[in-house]
């Protein structure tokens, strides 16, 4: 089964470990992720002010590219998923903004020939934006995933961290219950992990504030990491490169203000999936992890 895939900028470059593991895992469960032949940055933020059409142009353009490839678009990064899904909803619900966006797309087409072949038609929200987890659950099926596993991650105490962008706002994302979500838990359950419930799994990691105000972001991520640790987690999994960065790379800063702070590795969910599927070597790469997960994984004989 082939499904169009939007990696986004970060996965294209700094989160290659996420991208590569995801593609390999998809193959192993029978899905070929087909990267869109043309794509651009999604813009990273969804505009929260009413008059900003400009910031939905990038995601709508990408959706229009995707519409040429199929009726689904899979993505991984929480920001990309959030922006694409909400922009898609704007196109569906707001005819005026749809018209404006298409006006720009048409202008684009005239200007750039190579784009023309992809955006001959107006974009009207026909693509279904799926998160990779949704693809595993609803397209492949967790039962099918389970059948393909080479080993289960028994005894590995994993804290699933959702963050903000997948869940909120509920009415637009329609991803899961924003307060007591379960898609991640069910996924980890499929892998055989011991799922650690922790109160901060839907709280903010500090997000983009890491760039402007590191202390502020660290305060947030410390709260999340601390909660996972208190509840006995050995490893945290995320679906977002920025969350990964804030939770993983800032642990030295967190340690400064917490006595007896214990470091904990933070990995992408596809990396754990890869291990369970028996994918090895360069495809499951932990070299970019600040807190090395290998000792924990080796301790459970998972490497």
């Amino acid at each position: 089964m082939k499904i169009p895939y939007y990696p986004g900028c970060t996965l294209h470059e700094r989160a290659l470990d996420f991208d590569v593991s995801a593609r390999e895992c998809a193959k192993a469960v029978g899905v070929e992720l087909q990267e869109l032949p043309i794509w651009t940055c999604c813009g990273a933020v969804f505009p929260l002010v009413s008059d900003n059409v400009m910031e939905i142009l990038a995601p709508v353009r990408n959706l229009a590219y995707a519409a040429r490839e199929g009726d689904k678009l899979v993505t991984l990064c929480s920001f990309c998923y959030h922006v694409l899904k909400r922009a898609n909803k704007v196109v569906k619900d707001d005819p005026e903004k749809m018209e404006k966006a298409n006006l720009f797309l048409r202008a684009d087409t005239e200007a750039r020939e190579e784009v023309e072949s992809y955006t001959r038609k107006d974009y009207e929200g026909q693509v279904d934006v799926l998160h990779y987890l949704e693809m595993l659950r609803d397209v492949v099926g967790y039962d099918e995933v389970k059948k393909k596993l080479r080993r289960t991650l028994d005894g590995l105490r994993v804290a699933p961290y959702y963050g903000c962008m997948l869940l909120r706002p509920k009415k637009e994302m329609e991803f899961d219950d924003p307060e007591q979500p379960s898609i991640f838990e069910e996924f980890l359950d499929t892998l055989g992990c011991d799922v650690v419930d922790f109160a901060m799994k839907t709280e903010c990691c500090g997000g983009f504030q890491i760039v402007a105000d590191e202390d502020l972001a660290v305060q947030c991520s410390r709260n999340v990491v601390g909660s996972a640790l208190k509840n006995g987690a050995e490893i945290i999994v995320t679906t977002c490169p920025l969350c990964r960065y804030n939770l993983d790379k800032k642990q030295d800063e967190m340690a400064k203000s917490v006595r007896g702070f214990k470091k904990i590795p933070v990995v992408y969910f596809t990396q754990l999936l890869g291990i369970a599927l028996g994918i090895g070597g360069e495809h499951i790469d932990f070299s970019d992890n600040y807190v090395d997960p290998r000792p924990v994984l080796a301790g459970k004989s998972l490497l």
Partner: peptide
């Protein structure tokens, strides 16, 4: 930092 974070920060702030 992940590119998305830098882009988001610049856009937001």
């Amino acid at each position: 930092a992940p590119q998305m974070g830098v882009v988001a920060a610049l856009r937001k702030l």
